[in-house]
Amino acid sequence: MDAVFKALADESRRSILDHLYTQGGKTLGELCEPFAQIMSRQAVMKHLRILEDAHLITTVWSGREKKHYLNPVPIHAIETRWIRKFEKQRIDALSALKSALEGTDTKGKKNA
């Protein structure tokens, strides 16, 4: 997970991910175009390697072209690790409210 946070802690890399979110399957050349004024091809390559090492990008060879796709699975893992806890509290609060209003013990059923 360190690699994911390090990879995301850079504006240029987040922009690259934004481009792949809009349209997946881009080659290195296509990814360099929008950044032509601000980044060299070498810099884009370096960022792509960091993103790939963090598993935020999946690459697929299509003939002689290497295509890049956004892989949101590690970001989802971050969400489930911290955000789900808060959802749990909200859901528990709702079931407690439901039990109180209906006079039934939904908690007992849930744990059965």
Binding site: G24, G25, H55, T58, V60, Y69, N71, P72, V73
Partner: peptide, 11 residues
């Protein structure tokens, strides 16, 4: 279209 998802996970 040639739109596709390529999702990867390591387990």
């Amino acid at each position: 279209t040639d739109q596709k998802f390529v999702y990867t996970t390591y387990i």
